Deep mutational scan, measured.
Amino acid sequence: GPGLTDLFKTEKAAVKKMAKAIMADPSKADDVYQKWADKGYTLTQLSDFLKSKTRGKYDRVYNGYMTYR
């Protein structure tokens, strides 16, 4: 089956995709945050998933999740 690194890459891609969806349409934020909360994502995990070469690119999404939880 898929190894943990593959799983991480898949999760990371999914999280980034959802983060971009929030940035494009902030009204989606609560739905996405709820999904992440259901998956039990911690802020540390989210921070790892949303690492970007562009500093602060996903800060709004991260901060939103922090206040959501």
Score class of each variant (00 low, 15 high):
T54C: 11
D6V: 07
P2C: 15
A14I: 12
D59F: 08
K39H: 08
Y41N: 00
K51S: 11
T5L: 12
K53C: 08
K35Y: 14
W36M: 02
K35V: 14
T5A: 11
D48H: 15
R55D: 10
M18F: 04
V15P: 00
A37F: 15
K16S: 04
R60A: 14
A13Q: 10
S47Q: 12
L46E: 00
S47M: 12
L4N: 10
Y33V: 00
A14P: 02
D6F: 04
E11V: 06
Q45S: 05
V15W: 02
T67P: 02
D59Q: 12
K9V: 07
K17N: 07
R60L: 13
S47T: 11
F8D: 09
A29V: 03
E11N: 05
T44S: 12
K28R: 11
Q45H: 08
G1D: 11
W36G: 00
T54M: 06
T54N: 09
K51L: 09
K57L: 08
K9E: 11
D25A: 03
D38R: 10
V32H: 04
T44D: 13
S47A: 14
T67Y: 14
T54V: 11
W36C: 01
D59T: 09
A37W: 15
L43K: 04
K57I: 07
L46R: 00
D31K: 10
K57W: 05
R69Q: 12
T54R: 11
F49G: 02
G56R: 06
V15S: 01
A24H: 08
G40L: 04
G40V: 01
M23R: 03
Q34L: 06
L7S: 15
E11Y: 04
K20P: 00
P2Y: 04
D38F: 09
T67G: 07
Y41I: 11
D25G: 02
K53T: 10
K39W: 10
K28S: 07
K53W: 05
D30L: 12
D6G: 06
T44N: 13
R60S: 15
T42Y: 02
Q34M: 09
L4Y: 10
D30V: 12
A21F: 07
T42E: 04
V15F: 03
D31F: 15
S52W: 05
G1C: 15
T67C: 15
G64R: 03
M66Q: 13
D59S: 10
T42A: 03
Y68A: 02
R69A: 07
Q34S: 11
D30S: 10
K28C: 14
K35H: 10
Y41E: 00
I22S: 02
I22G: 01
P26Y: 07
F49R: 02
Y68I: 02
D38G: 07
R60I: 13
A24N: 12
S27H: 06
D6R: 05
K28N: 08
Y65K: 00
Y65F: 06
M23D: 02
A14N: 11
Y62T: 09
A24Y: 08
R69K: 12
K16Q: 11
R55V: 13
A13G: 05
Y41D: 01
Y68V: 02
P26K: 05
R55Y: 10
K53H: 09
L43W: 04
D25S: 04
D48A: 15
K35L: 15
Y41R: 01
Y58W: 09
R69N: 06
D25R: 03
D25E: 06
K12Q: 15
D31G: 10
Y33L: 01
S27Q: 07
E11C: 06
D38T: 10
T54K: 12
A21R: 07
L46I: 11
F8C: 13
R55A: 12
I22P: 00
A13L: 08
M23Y: 03
V61Q: 02
